[in-house]
C-alpha cells in the first residue's frame, strides 16, 4: 500500500466521530475604519499618506523618496514607472529596485494589513524584494476585521495572494525590533480619498 493510502486509512481509523463545524460569529464594530487602519499601521512601523484624486502617485513617490534610483510600478496607470516588460523580465533583476509601487485591493483596520494578489503585483516577488514599498489603497475599501476581509475575498481565484502589514521586520536579536529584515525597510500606504 502507498504511504498515502496507509496514512488515510490510519487517520480514518483514528479520528473520532464527526463533530460539528461552528459558524463564525462576527461582532459588529463601531469604529472609524480609516482612522483605526492608520493608527494600527503606524504602530507596526508603516506610514499612511492621504492622497486626493488629483494628486499624482508618481510625483508623491518621488517626493517621498528623492534618492531613489529605480522605481517600478505594477500599476498601469502610473505610466512613468510601469514595467510593461514584466512578462519577459527576470524576477531576480528586481533586486536593485528602490521603490515598488503596487495597488492593493483593500485594507483591514484591525491589523493595518492590505490585500494584494498576483494580478495586482504582476510579479510575485515585487513587494518583497524592493527596498521600500508603496501600496495604493482606496480609503473606502477599508474593512473592520479579517472576517470581513475574507468575506470580501470570497471564493476569488488567484495564484498567489497576501496580506502585507508594514515593513519587513525581525526582533530575533534580543527582541530589539529592526525594520527591513529581508524585505522592504519601509511601507507607505497611499490612501486615496
Amino acid at each position: 500500500m502507498s504511504s498515502r493510502d496507509a496514512i488515510l486509512q490510519k487517520v480514518k481509523a483514528a479520528q473520532p466521530s464527526l463533530l460539528p463545524l461552528p459558524s463564525i460569529e462576527k461582532q459588529p464594530r463601531e469604529v472609524d475604519a480609516v482612522k483605526q487602519f492608520q493608527a494600527v499601521l503606524e504602530s507596526i512601523g508603516g506610514k499612511v499618506v492621504f492622497l486626493n484624486a488629483e494628486e499624482s502617485i508618481a510625483e508623491k513617490t518621488v517626493a517621498l523618496f528623492p534618492e531613489a534610483k529605480r522605481i517600478v510600478s505594477s500599476i498601469t496607470a502610473v505610466q512613468n514607472y510601469f514595467f510593461s516588460d514584466y512578462k519577459s523580465l527576470r524576477h531576480h533583476s528586481l533586486q536593485d529596485v528602490d521603490v515598488a509601487i503596487i495597488e492593493a485591493q483593500f485594507g483591514v483596520a484591525e491589523n493595518g494589513a492590505v490585500w494584494v494578489t498576483e494580478e495586482d503585483l504582476k510579479i510575485r516577488v515585487l513587494p518583497f524584494i524592493c527596498e521600500h514599498l508603496v501600496a495604493v489603497v482606496d480609503s473606502t475599501t477599508i474593512v473592520a476585521t479579517l472576517h470581513e476581509a475574507y468575506e470580501r475575498i470570497g471564493a476569488s481565484a488567484y495564484g498567489f495572494g497576501a496580506f502585507i502589514a508594514g515593513p519587513s521586520k525581525t526582533a530575533d536579536i534580543e527582541q530589539s525590533l529592526v525594520l527591513g529584515a529581508h524585505g522592504p525597510k519601509s511601507m507607505t500606504v497611499f490612501l486615496l480619498h
Binding site: 507596526i44 498567489f160 497576501a162 502589514a165 519587513s168
Partner: peptide, 11 residues
Amino acid sequence: PITTYSSHFKK
C-alpha cells in the same frame, strides 16, 4: 495584530 506577511500560495 498580524504577521507582516500572510502569504496564500495557491498555484
